[in-house]
Design a protein around this nucleic acid. Sequence first.
DNA 1: ATCTAAATACTCAAACACGC
DNA 2: GCGTGTTTGAGTATTTAGAT
Length: 374
Amino acid sequence: MGRPPSNGGPAFRFTQAEVAEMEAILQEHNNAMPARDVLTALAEKFSESPDRKGKITVQMKQVWNWFQNKRYAIRAKSSKAPGKLSITPMPRDESTPVRNMPQPMATPMPPASDSVPTTGKGAPENSAMEFEAKSGRDGAWYDVANFLSHRHLETSDPEVLVRFAGFGPEEDEWVNVRRNVRPRSLPCESSECVAVLPGDLILCFQEGKEQALYFDAHVLDAQRRRHDVRGCRCRFLVRYDHDQSEEIVPLRKVCRRPETDYRLQQLHAMNEATPVDQQKTSMDLTPVHVIKVPSSAETVPKQQSVNTAIVPPVPQANVSLVPQTMNIDPKKVEATSDMKGGNTIVRPGGTVFPSNVITSGVPVVSSQNMDEGK
DNA sequence: ATCTAAATACTCAAACACGC
DNA sequence: GCGTGTTTGAGTATTTAGAT
C-alpha cells in the first residue's frame, strides 16, 4: 500500500493505532503541524513498537508526510462547503459533484414579458418548473432559488434579479432573461445515459484548479460502458463552450437539458410496449426499434438536426453514436458474427455491439475508444 | 535555504464482471 | 465455484511553486 520507497523496500503503511495517535495529536494542535521533535518522537515510538521493532524503522519524514497529507485532506474537505467559488457549488452529496436534486420552486416568477420563462407549456405535468441562470461573473450556470425582481431596459432584453440557490443576497445578479435564464438542467440518473448523445448541449461540471462550476458544453462522443452496482460508467467526450477545452467526463458530471426528456419518454414507452423477449430479438433486427427522432433543437444547428437515429437503451461497443445527420436505411444494416462472444449487430454507421449482452434497460458493453489515451 | 501548501505519482486491496 | 482482468478508492511518497 502506498508508494514504495525508492530504495525498493516494502510498502509502508501506518497501523490503525498509529493513525489514531497521530490524529489525536493533530487535533491537539488544531490542525497545525506539530513541532519537529514531536514528529521525531513519534517516529521513534512507532519504530520501537512490537510490530515494527527490528523490522521497520519509521522515519520522521514519513510521520511528517502523514501530517502534511492529513492536514491537506482535512482542508480540502472543509473547503467543499457551499460557496460560490468553492469546489462544488451545488453538491448533491459529499462524494459526487452533482447538482441539487429538483425541488419545488418556492417563489413564482415575477410577472414579466412573454420572454420571461413561466411555468406552463413544455413542463411535465405535476412538476414545478425550475430555472437556472448564468452568472455574469464567472459564466457558470447556477440554480435559481428566487426571482426577486425584474426590469425592462429599452435597449435590451428584459432582466430579472435572481437569488442563486445556496447563496445570499450579496451574490444576487441581474441576468438577461432571454439569454441567461432557462429551465433547469437535469442531473442524469444512471439509466438516463442513453439520452445523452453526441451533439447535445449539456451542462457539465468542470473542475478547475481554483473552482469547479457548471458550464455549457457539447457532447462530442459517447463511450458506452457496462453498468454495475455503482451505476452508469459511460464516458462522454465533451467540449466546453466557454473555453473550447475538451474533457472526458462520467455521467455524474453531466446534466442534460430538459429538451431531451422526450427521448426517455419514448424509450420508456417502447420498453413498456414490448415484452423483454421480443425486445431482445427485435433489437437484433435493429430496424424494428430504431426510431427517428429530432435531436434537441438547441444543441444542433438547424441544418444538422435532420433526423437523429436514437436506439433504445442498447449496448454499444466502440460507440460513435449514430451521426446526427444519419438516416436509417434498413438495407444498410448488416449483421456480423466475428466478435468474440456471439452474434454482433452493426448499426448504421458502423457501430458494432454483441447481441449476447443486450439487456432490457441499460448499456452493458464496454468499449475502448476513449480509454486509449489513459 | 527552508518551510509549507497543493498537486500529482504510484501502488495495493477490494469489488466486480466475465469466461470457463 | 474459480481464476482472471479491470476499475476504483485509499493511502503514502514525491514534486513543484510560493512564501519567508
